[in-house]
């Protein structure tokens, strides 16, 4: 007999992922590999020498952000966006989020944590993480005998 435990939550999650995948194909084609509620969403790419991490952080200032690299491959970003304190009026819409966030990520390779640099421009944070020598790709010469 086939003994399958009925797990409604798992089933629902599976259904949701399937739906997300389906709609990603035709509609909103933004890439999504993580849960929707992780903040901030990150884009990561690399070239031969560096890893790059980018996040959209509107309304933050570089001094409100704390970027740390621990153990050579753990990146963490903390920050806070404070809600404006306004008086003598009413809110009609409140769609933007405020508060503290903390995001940690394991990088796909070891980086030289001494030389990590960050740039913050128009609300977009770009972190440049130089790769360690041993993880840089090396071209192997093939000798013709």
């Amino acid at each position: 007999m086939l003994a399958t435990r009925w797990e409604p939550l798992t089933q629902m999650n599976r259904l949701r992922h399937e739906m997300d995948r389906l709609f990603d194909r035709w509609g909103d084609n933004r890439p999504q590999q993580y849960a929707r509620n992780t903040f901030p969403p990150l884009n990561l790419w690399e070239n031969d020498d560096n890893l790059f991490v980018e996040a959209e952080l509107p309304g933050f200032a570089l001094e409100d952000l704390e970027i740390m690299v621990t153990g050579g491959n753990q990146l963490s970003i903390n920050g806070e966006r404070k809600a404006p304190e306004l008086e003598g009026g009413t809110w009609h819409r409140r769609e933007r989020g405020f508060g503290k966030f903390n995001r940690a990520l394991e990088l796909p390779g070891y980086v030289d944590s001494e030389n990590v640099s960050a740039e913050f421009k128009n609300g977009v944070l770009t972190i440049t993480l130089p790769k360690r020598e041993e993880v840089k790709p090396r071209r192997i010469e093939v000798k013709v005998s």
């Binding site: 959209e56 952080l57 809110w91 009609h92 769609e95 933007r96």
Partner: peptide, 27 residues
Amino acid sequence: ATTYCPRFDIWETEDELVLYGDMPGVT
């Protein structure tokens, strides 16, 4: 190209309406 709908907060006082919108990357 994909066009996104930015998030907005709207505040009203006796004198004005103030809109705050998150549009990272825009100059």
